[in-house]
Design a protein around this nucleic acid. Structure first.
Lengths: 119, 119
DNA sequence: CTGTATCCATGGAGATACTG
DNA sequence: CAGTATCTCCATGGATACAG
Protein backbone atom coordinates (compact mmCIF):
# COMPACT_ATOMS: atom_id res chain seq x y z
CA UNK A 1 0.00 0.00 0.00
CA UNK A 2 2.83 2.39 0.67
CA UNK A 3 4.23 1.97 -2.79
CA UNK A 4 0.80 2.61 -4.20
CA UNK A 5 0.55 5.83 -2.25
CA UNK A 6 3.99 6.89 -3.41
CA UNK A 7 3.01 6.45 -7.01
CA UNK A 8 -0.30 8.17 -6.47
CA UNK A 9 1.22 11.10 -4.68
CA UNK A 10 3.55 11.62 -7.57
CA UNK A 11 1.08 11.13 -10.38
CA UNK A 12 -2.14 12.04 -8.66
CA UNK A 13 -2.00 15.75 -9.22
CA UNK A 14 -4.04 17.50 -11.80
CA UNK A 15 -1.22 18.01 -14.27
CA UNK A 16 1.66 15.63 -13.77
CA UNK A 17 0.43 12.86 -15.99
CA UNK A 18 -0.51 15.30 -18.71
CA UNK A 19 2.97 16.76 -18.64
CA UNK A 20 4.58 13.35 -18.75
CA UNK A 21 2.37 12.19 -21.57
CA UNK A 22 3.24 15.32 -23.48
CA UNK A 23 6.93 14.74 -22.92
CA UNK A 24 6.63 11.19 -24.16
CA UNK A 25 6.55 12.76 -27.61
CA UNK A 26 9.97 14.21 -27.05
CA UNK A 27 11.74 17.11 -25.33
CA UNK A 28 9.80 20.31 -25.08
CA UNK A 29 10.32 23.84 -23.95
CA UNK A 30 8.38 25.64 -21.27
CA UNK A 31 6.02 27.55 -23.52
CA UNK A 32 5.50 24.52 -25.67
CA UNK A 33 4.41 22.51 -22.67
CA UNK A 34 2.10 25.24 -21.54
CA UNK A 35 0.38 25.10 -24.91
CA UNK A 36 0.23 21.33 -24.86
CA UNK A 37 -1.14 20.93 -21.39
CA UNK A 38 -4.41 22.73 -21.83
CA UNK A 39 -5.37 25.03 -19.03
CA UNK A 40 -2.22 24.97 -16.98
CA UNK A 41 -0.80 28.25 -15.75
CA UNK A 42 2.88 29.14 -15.72
CA UNK A 43 2.94 28.92 -11.97
CA UNK A 44 1.55 25.43 -11.91
CA UNK A 45 3.67 24.23 -14.79
CA UNK A 46 6.76 25.55 -13.09
CA UNK A 47 5.87 23.90 -9.82
CA UNK A 48 4.97 20.58 -11.37
CA UNK A 49 8.10 20.50 -13.49
CA UNK A 50 10.18 21.11 -10.40
CA UNK A 51 8.59 18.22 -8.60
CA UNK A 52 8.97 15.91 -11.54
CA UNK A 53 12.61 16.88 -11.81
CA UNK A 54 13.25 16.26 -8.14
CA UNK A 55 11.71 12.86 -8.56
CA UNK A 56 14.05 12.14 -11.40
CA UNK A 57 11.40 11.76 -14.03
CA UNK A 58 12.67 14.50 -16.24
CA UNK A 59 15.74 16.64 -16.72
CA UNK A 60 15.97 20.34 -17.28
CA UNK A 61 18.63 21.85 -19.51
CA UNK A 62 19.27 25.52 -20.00
CA UNK A 63 20.76 27.01 -23.12
CA UNK A 64 21.93 30.41 -22.01
CA UNK A 65 23.80 31.44 -25.13
CA UNK A 66 20.73 32.29 -27.14
CA UNK A 67 18.84 35.56 -27.14
CA UNK A 68 15.95 34.77 -24.79
CA UNK A 69 17.26 31.91 -22.71
CA UNK A 70 15.96 28.54 -23.84
CA UNK A 71 15.01 25.82 -21.39
CA UNK A 72 14.29 22.30 -22.49
CA UNK A 73 12.60 19.59 -20.50
CA UNK A 74 13.36 16.01 -21.36
CA UNK A 75 11.71 12.94 -19.99
CA UNK A 76 14.27 10.78 -18.26
CA UNK A 77 14.69 7.31 -19.74
CA UNK A 78 13.22 6.19 -16.49
CA UNK A 79 10.09 8.14 -17.29
CA UNK A 80 9.23 5.48 -19.83
CA UNK A 81 8.77 3.01 -17.04
CA UNK A 82 5.55 4.84 -16.37
CA UNK A 83 4.03 3.52 -19.55
CA UNK A 84 2.55 0.42 -17.90
CA UNK A 85 0.97 2.60 -15.26
CA UNK A 86 -0.42 5.04 -17.79
CA UNK A 87 -1.66 2.16 -19.83
CA UNK A 88 -3.38 0.51 -16.89
CA UNK A 89 -5.04 3.78 -15.94
CA UNK A 90 -6.06 4.40 -19.51
CA UNK A 91 -7.44 0.94 -19.98
CA UNK A 92 -9.40 0.92 -16.77
CA UNK A 93 -10.56 4.50 -17.27
CA UNK A 94 -12.17 3.76 -20.60
CA UNK A 95 -13.69 0.56 -19.27
CA UNK A 96 -15.06 2.45 -16.33
CA UNK A 97 -16.69 5.04 -18.50
CA UNK A 98 -18.57 2.25 -20.20
CA UNK A 99 -19.61 0.68 -16.94
CA UNK A 100 -21.07 3.93 -15.70
CA UNK A 101 -22.82 4.85 -18.91
CA UNK A 102 -23.91 1.42 -20.16
CA UNK A 103 -23.71 -1.00 -17.25
CA UNK A 104 -25.67 -3.78 -18.92
CA UNK A 105 -23.47 -3.92 -21.99
CA UNK A 106 -20.26 -3.65 -20.10
CA UNK A 107 -20.79 -6.29 -17.47
CA UNK A 108 -23.51 -8.30 -19.18
CA UNK A 109 -21.22 -11.28 -19.40
CA UNK A 110 -20.36 -11.51 -15.75
CA UNK A 111 -23.42 -10.45 -13.79
CA UNK A 112 -26.86 -11.95 -13.67
CA UNK A 113 -29.26 -9.56 -15.29
CA UNK A 114 -32.69 -9.90 -13.73
CA UNK A 115 -34.36 -9.01 -16.99
CA UNK A 116 -32.77 -8.87 -20.39
CA UNK A 117 -32.68 -5.40 -21.82
CA UNK A 118 -35.65 -5.03 -24.14
CA UNK A 119 -34.08 -2.93 -26.87
CA UNK B 1 -5.65 11.13 -21.82
CA UNK B 2 -9.26 11.60 -20.86
CA UNK B 3 -9.61 8.04 -19.69
CA UNK B 4 -6.47 8.44 -17.67
CA UNK B 5 -7.91 11.48 -15.97
CA UNK B 6 -11.15 9.66 -15.27
CA UNK B 7 -9.31 6.90 -13.54
CA UNK B 8 -7.12 9.32 -11.66
CA UNK B 9 -10.02 11.43 -10.52
CA UNK B 10 -11.66 8.38 -9.10
CA UNK B 11 -8.63 6.82 -7.48
CA UNK B 12 -6.45 9.83 -6.93
CA UNK B 13 -7.86 10.91 -3.62
CA UNK B 14 -6.12 10.30 -0.38
CA UNK B 15 -8.29 7.42 0.73
CA UNK B 16 -10.08 5.72 -2.12
CA UNK B 17 -7.41 3.21 -2.94
CA UNK B 18 -6.87 2.37 0.69
CA UNK B 19 -10.56 1.69 1.10
CA UNK B 20 -10.68 -0.45 -2.00
CA UNK B 21 -7.62 -2.40 -0.99
CA UNK B 22 -9.14 -2.97 2.40
CA UNK B 23 -12.36 -4.19 0.84
CA UNK B 24 -10.45 -6.59 -1.36
CA UNK B 25 -10.17 -8.72 1.77
CA UNK B 26 -13.92 -9.00 1.93
CA UNK B 27 -17.01 -7.04 3.02
CA UNK B 28 -16.55 -4.73 5.93
CA UNK B 29 -18.61 -2.52 8.11
CA UNK B 30 -18.18 1.19 8.61
CA UNK B 31 -16.32 1.09 11.87
CA UNK B 32 -14.18 -1.75 10.65
CA UNK B 33 -13.13 0.28 7.65
CA UNK B 34 -12.36 3.26 9.79
CA UNK B 35 -10.01 1.11 11.83
CA UNK B 36 -8.41 -0.37 8.73
CA UNK B 37 -7.83 2.83 6.88
CA UNK B 38 -5.51 4.53 9.31
CA UNK B 39 -6.18 8.16 9.93
CA UNK B 40 -9.43 8.56 8.10
CA UNK B 41 -12.25 10.40 9.83
CA UNK B 42 -15.87 9.35 9.78
CA UNK B 43 -16.73 12.28 7.58
CA UNK B 44 -14.15 11.43 4.98
CA UNK B 45 -14.93 7.74 5.07
CA UNK B 46 -18.59 8.47 4.59
CA UNK B 47 -17.91 10.79 1.71
CA UNK B 48 -15.48 8.48 -0.02
CA UNK B 49 -17.75 5.50 0.35
CA UNK B 50 -20.56 7.46 -1.21
CA UNK B 51 -18.44 8.36 -4.20
CA UNK B 52 -17.23 4.83 -4.64
CA UNK B 53 -20.79 3.60 -4.48
CA UNK B 54 -21.96 6.11 -7.07
CA UNK B 55 -19.19 4.92 -9.31
CA UNK B 56 -20.36 1.38 -8.90
CA UNK B 57 -17.23 0.10 -7.28
CA UNK B 58 -18.93 -1.05 -4.13
CA UNK B 59 -22.36 -1.74 -2.78
CA UNK B 60 -23.86 -0.74 0.52
CA UNK B 61 -26.29 -2.98 2.35
CA UNK B 62 -28.18 -2.11 5.50
CA UNK B 63 -29.35 -4.64 8.02
CA UNK B 64 -31.96 -2.76 9.97
CA UNK B 65 -33.33 -5.63 12.04
CA UNK B 66 -30.44 -5.72 14.47
CA UNK B 67 -29.98 -3.64 17.57
CA UNK B 68 -27.65 -0.89 16.34
CA UNK B 69 -28.19 -0.92 12.61
CA UNK B 70 -25.46 -2.74 10.70
CA UNK B 71 -24.17 -1.46 7.40
CA UNK B 72 -21.92 -3.54 5.22
CA UNK B 73 -19.83 -2.38 2.32
CA UNK B 74 -18.94 -4.87 -0.33
CA UNK B 75 -16.62 -4.41 -3.23
CA UNK B 76 -18.49 -4.89 -6.46
CA UNK B 77 -17.23 -7.70 -8.67
CA UNK B 78 -16.26 -4.91 -10.98
CA UNK B 79 -13.98 -3.57 -8.28
CA UNK B 80 -11.65 -6.45 -8.96
CA UNK B 81 -10.94 -5.02 -12.36
CA UNK B 82 -8.88 -2.47 -10.50
CA UNK B 83 -6.31 -5.04 -9.61
CA UNK B 84 -4.17 -4.43 -12.70
CA UNK B 85 -4.18 -0.73 -11.93
CA UNK B 86 -3.30 -1.26 -8.30
CA UNK B 87 -0.64 -3.67 -9.34
CA UNK B 88 0.88 -1.28 -11.85
CA UNK B 89 0.91 1.51 -9.28
CA UNK B 90 2.38 -0.77 -6.69
CA UNK B 91 5.03 -2.08 -8.99
CA UNK B 92 6.07 1.31 -10.23
CA UNK B 93 5.87 2.83 -6.77
CA UNK B 94 8.32 0.39 -5.29
CA UNK B 95 10.63 0.73 -8.28
CA UNK B 96 10.47 4.46 -7.95
CA UNK B 97 11.43 4.37 -4.33
CA UNK B 98 14.55 2.50 -5.33
CA UNK B 99 15.36 4.91 -8.09
CA UNK B 100 15.19 7.83 -5.73
CA UNK B 101 17.14 6.21 -2.94
CA UNK B 102 19.64 4.13 -4.89
CA UNK B 103 19.73 5.41 -8.47
CA UNK B 104 22.87 3.55 -9.48
CA UNK B 105 21.60 0.15 -8.45
CA UNK B 106 18.19 0.60 -9.92
CA UNK B 107 19.09 1.78 -13.38
CA UNK B 108 22.62 0.44 -13.58
CA UNK B 109 21.66 -1.91 -16.35
CA UNK B 110 20.17 0.63 -18.69
CA UNK B 111 22.17 3.80 -18.29
CA UNK B 112 25.82 4.44 -18.97
CA UNK B 113 27.52 5.00 -15.67
CA UNK B 114 30.50 7.30 -16.12
CA UNK B 115 32.31 5.54 -13.33
CA UNK B 116 31.44 2.19 -11.85
CA UNK B 117 30.32 2.42 -8.29
CA UNK B 118 33.29 1.57 -6.13
CA UNK B 119 31.54 -0.31 -3.38
C1' DC C 1 11.09 33.30 -23.27
C1' DT C 2 11.17 31.45 -18.62
C1' DG C 3 9.91 31.89 -14.86
C1' DT C 4 8.78 34.17 -9.71
C1' DA C 5 5.98 36.92 -6.34
C1' DT C 6 1.72 38.32 -4.63
C1' DC C 7 -3.06 38.39 -3.88
C1' DC C 8 -7.09 35.95 -3.35
C1' DA C 9 -11.07 32.54 -3.96
C1' DT C 10 -12.37 27.93 -3.44
C1' DG C 11 -12.55 23.60 -1.58
C1' DG C 12 -10.42 19.71 0.94
C1' DA C 13 -10.22 17.99 5.15
C1' DG C 14 -9.68 17.82 10.49
C1' DA C 15 -12.13 18.46 15.16
C1' DT C 16 -16.04 18.32 17.50
C1' DA C 17 -20.69 17.75 18.63
C1' DC C 18 -24.83 15.75 17.58
C1' DT C 19 -28.75 12.37 15.55
C1' DG C 20 -31.19 7.95 14.31
C1' DC D 1 -23.02 1.59 15.36
C1' DA D 2 -23.37 4.64 11.41
C1' DG D 3 -23.32 8.50 10.09
C1' DT D 4 -24.44 14.12 9.58
C1' DA D 5 -23.75 19.13 10.68
C1' DT D 6 -20.97 22.88 11.64
C1' DC D 7 -16.91 25.39 12.22
C1' DT D 8 -12.56 26.29 10.95
C1' DC D 9 -7.90 25.95 9.12
C1' DC D 10 -4.98 25.53 5.37
C1' DA D 11 -3.30 23.96 0.85
C1' DT D 12 -4.31 24.18 -4.00
C1' DG D 13 -4.48 26.72 -7.59
C1' DG D 14 -6.12 30.78 -10.61
C1' DA D 15 -5.09 35.82 -12.08
C1' DT D 16 -2.12 39.21 -12.46
C1' DA D 17 2.03 41.74 -12.32
C1' DC D 18 6.73 41.64 -12.35
C1' DA D 19 11.91 40.04 -13.21
C1' DG D 20 16.12 37.92 -15.44
Amino acid sequence: MRSVRDALDLLGGKWKLAIIVSLLEGPKRFKQLQRDVTGITAKMLSKELKELEVNGLLSRSVQADVAPVAVTYTLAPYGDTLLPVIDALHHWGSQHRMNIMHPQEAVAAKTEVSEPVAA
